[in-house]
Amino acid sequence: MGRQDLPPIKGYEPIQWKRNLPSRGFRPSIWLGMLIGLSSYGFYKLIQGNRENIELSREKLWARINLIPLLQAEQDRDVVRRTLSYYNREAEIMKDVPWWEVRNTYSDKNEFQPPHTVLVGKQLDKNHGIYNGNSRNRWGPDDSPKKETSS
């Protein structure tokens, strides 16, 4: 019988598991410093931008605030006109009923309240194409020549 293979008496040599590659580039701390520097610059610009965005939205807001009384006044006139003419029409229709009283339905208080029911008109532009659906003559009487429908 031959001798059994045994490890060398002093043991094996240490295995070289570490690669001897030179470490390239900067130290990690320098990379971290560069990253922080870059981020700081970025955040500086970003903060400036955000501050300006706040100012820009303030500008938009005040432009709107300056216009609100104008728009509100126009809308109010329209509401009053519609309300009064609605009540006038109601009084005209119900003039033969002696106990009828034209007043707002939903509140006992004597306050202005537009009627909760409205006169509803036609659907505009029924036969027009998809693309320019309601572009023509939206609010006025329908002057455009009507197409003959087969129905």
Binding site: S39, K45, G49
Partner: peptide
């Protein structure tokens, strides 16, 4: 549009 000020890769690289 907000990236006109700075592109977000610079502050937010990670």
């Amino acid at each position: 549009d907000s990236q006109v000020y700075i592109q977000y890769v610079i502050p937010l690289l990670p």
